[in-house]
């Protein structure tokens, strides 16, 4: 281990709206930081080499693979993980959609898909099937064969649009 990797660094991040500061090894990956240091184990590790997408989190709103980022690279950032989706005991509409459309089996890949889809639907409320496939194509699921995940995302988009419509209508 090189000196630089062994060096200790201070990292400050906001995760799901809560500020955290830790002194850590510079070589600690972001996913190990989230899971090990902060105890937020909802983000999963499927490959540790950037291919499966299970570890996807939002870093300042952008979907990233937390297994191939160092925690120090996230210093100062706002991170959203799967634990940040549901509020007040209510599932997020994307989570609801995955439940209703059976978009998960073992559920191990699911947090990564949920975060990737969150990014998609925030920027593109009415995505085409190609746009959805484009995002889903970056994540691996070994259980579902993707059919129900695709249906879940379509349902989630519709739910979110309906909600926005209601809010707009109320306003």
């Amino acid at each position: 281990m090189s000196e630089a990797m062994a060096a200790r660094r201070t990292v400050s991040v906001t995760v799901n709206g809560v500020a955290h500061e830790r002194v850590i090894d510079a070589r600690l990956t972001l996913v190990d930081f989230l899971r090990g240091e902060l105890g937020m184990t909802g983000t999963h590790v499927g490959c540790e080499h950037g291919l499966c997408g299970a570890c996807t989190v939002l870093l300042d709103g952008q979907a990233v693979r937390s297994c191939i980022l160092l925690a120090v690279q996230a210093d100062g950032a706002a991170i959203t993980t799967v634990e940040g989706l549901a509020t007040g005991g209510q599932l997020h509409p994307i989570q609801e959609a995955f439940m209703e459309a059976h978009g998960l089996q073992c559920g191990f890949c699911t947090p990564g898909f949920l975060m990737a889809v969150t990014e998609l639907l925030e920027g593109t409320p009415d995505p085409t099937e190609d746009e959805i496939r484009d995002v889903l194509g970056g994540n691996l699921c070994r259980c579902t064969g993707y059919e129900a995940i695709l249906a879940s995302v379509k349902l989630a988009a519709a739910k979110l649009r309906a909600l926005r419509g209601t809010v707009a209508g109320d306003g």
Binding site: G42, M99, T110, P111
Partner: peptide, 21 residues
């Protein structure tokens, strides 16, 4: 019936206790 699964809430919120947790 194709009812939603009882397993899913915990999985969808990242609460299920996989061994690495």
């Amino acid at each position: 019936q194709p009812i939603p699964r009882v397993e899913d809430r915990s999985l969808l919120t990242g609460q299920t206790e996989f061994v690495d947790n």
